[in-house]
Design a protein around this nucleic acid. Structure first.
Length: 481
RNA sequence: GGCGCCAUGGUCUAUCGGUUAGGACACGUCUCUUUCAAGGACGUAGGACGGGUUCGACUCCCGUUGGCGCUACCA
């Protein structure tokens, strides 16, 4: 049975890198018909951030990636919060201590710091000097003092494992390894220990995690050995780097995942784009539906080198997915953005909805982000236009323009058939009659009616706006000049 | 500093010894057009360097350089 887990720690807003790992986990579980487990690694009380877990769950659900086991849904391998599994970690730590494979360490953080600084100053490799490993409890004068539990690593030899992404065996010199902390003095386990215990107990078959853990592999190898457990398949996925080429982290501003939701990216675009950051199956295809991704995703396609996160392709992809939406879907997607700035009322009536759909149809192809909808369609909903200076200078300020606009208004006013075709014919005719052919009439009319020099087709825009508003705006502009 | 991973255009990538090194984004030109998009056509741009191995290396090996990661009572 394939079981994969996504194991975030609630220490802040999830970023692109966290979510990409979750996408790989989810895709692999769905691809193999396995289980997708969500486990919360809340073992660092100092860095715990309120609301981070809710944000994570919200992000996952927004993408339609519902976990099979974990918070809110339960499962047979719970609890799924590490903070609720402390007794389990203590039990196994106790067994390892009894077997002489782990030991209590009473060294103070001051001593550790001093030791590290001395090692650095001497140009030596830093690491715990294992003082407490060989001393007895009596020798340490330890009674009542706080302690951590360290794992007793072998001091010589090499350790190795098969890396499924790199396709080769990776090995490490044991003499360079440290007796790492398993249990902290506050009684909480460290990631290194807790994840091993939980992955085993939760019967995780494949561990997908960032490649920053590769250098910690010796720890896991010996922990599994000491516990007598079989290792899962390690899938070290490539890191996602920021534009500055460093590992993605909080300090990279625009990388918080939820902010992409707010800007109006679509889940299918985010999943498609992120799945291709560190995985590929052909190289000739860029657009994948979620079903195609589930069908094709496999460990063999995972890339072995880091990828820089550059959102320009994501933006393009989002435009592609927006264009694939029906008008009704687009309405549902854009309405919140339009309502937020008051362009559309909270409880719109049927005619308003119909009108909004007509407007959205006109900007549909131009939209790359849902959040662009208000700015792009503002003049359809508001009569007090903001005029682009460029348009005013180039067209409205021309001495001959008012007469042209007035004439167009006149002809439009008496137009019988209010269709796009009739409007176009009439505007063009009126232009000719007033001595302004083609662009010479179209541009000033556009600026008059929309305030802009760019936008959807002018005649479609006029048709949507309605005769009354068009005539009024033309006369306003004529008088304005 | 030590250890580890990695190395194809600006970016994401294909290539698993023999290709005019392919695709996509971005960029540029043209086209369509009232504008801006969208669409179509075309184009600029790539194997870090040096040694091997081989009839033949982007591809395999070694070294160099470079980038990144780890080096916590963070994950």
């Amino acid at each position: 049975m394939i079981r994969v887990r996504f194991a975030p720690s609630p220490t802040g807003s999830p970023h692109i890198g966290n979510i990409r790992t979750a996408i790989f986990d989810w895709l692999y579980a769905r691809h193999t018909g396995g289980k997708f487990v969500l486990r919360i690694e809340d073992t660092d009380q100092a860095r715990y951030v309120e609301g981070a877990l809710e944000e994570m769950m919200n992000d996952l659900r927004w993408m339609g990636m519902q976990w099979d086991e974990g918070p809110e849904v339960g499962g047979d391998f719970g609890p799924y919060f590490q903070s609720e599994r402390l007794d389990i970690y203590h039990k196994y730590a106790g067994e390892l201590i009894a077997a002489g494979k782990a030991y209590k360490c009473y060294c103070t953080s001051e001593r550790l710091t001093e030791m590290r600084e001395a090692q650095q100053a001497a140009g030596k490799t830093t690491g715990y000097d294992r003082r407490c490993r060989s001393l007895s409890e009596a020798e340490l004068e330890s009674s009542g003092k706080p302690y951590v539990v360290r794992f007793a690593m072998p001091e010589s030899g090499t350790s190795s494992y098969q890396d499924v992404v790199r396709g080769s065996e990776l090995s490490f010199d044991n003499s360079l390894q440290d007796d790492f902390v398993m249990l902290k003095s506050d009684g909480f386990p460290t990631y290194n220990f807790a994840s091993v215990v939980d992955d085993h107990l939760m019967e995780i078959s494949h561990v997908f995690r960032g490649e920053e853990y590769i250098s910690s592999m010796p720890k896991y190898i010996y922990l599994y050995e000491a516990l007598g457990w079989e290792q899962p398949v390690w899938v070290h996925v490539p890191l996602i780097l920021g534009p500055d080429k460093s590992k993605l982290s909080k300090r990279h501003g625009a990388v918080n995942f939820s902010s992409y939701i707010g800007e109006g990216y679509l889940p299918e675009a985010m999943i498609n784009f992120l799945a291709l950051l560190g995985w590929s199956d052909s190289g000739d295809k860029d657009l994948y539906t979620i079903d195609e991704l589930v069908e094709r995703f496999d460990i063999s396609g995972i890339i072995n080198h880091p990828a820089i996160f550059d959102s320009s392709k994501l933006l393009w992809m989002n435009g592609v997915y927006i264009r694939q939406k029906s008008i009704d879907e687009l309405l549902a997607l854009c309405l919140p953005y339009l309502q937020e700035v008051g362009l559309v009322p909270e409880n719109p009536d049927e005619p308003t909805l119909t009108y909004t759909k007509k407007v959205l149809a006109l900007i549909h192809d131009r939209l790359k982000l849902l959040s662009e909808a208000p700015e792009m369609s503002e003049f359809f909903f508001k009569d007090d236009l903001t005029f682009e200076q460029k348009g005013v200078d180039k067209w409205l300020a021309k001495p001959e323009t008012p007469a042209v606009l007035e004439h167009v208004a006149e002809r439009i006013e008496s137009l019988g058939d209010w269709s796009v075709e009739a409007i176009e014919a009439t505007v063009r005719e009126a232009g000719v009659e007033a001595g302004a052919e083609g662009g010479k009439v179209i541009h000033p009319v556009r600026v008059s009616v929309t305030g802009r020099t760019t936008g959807p087709g002018l005649f479609e825009t006029m048709e949507a706006l309605g005769r009354e508003k068009v005539v009024q705006r033309l006369r306003n502009a004529a008088g304005r000049a």
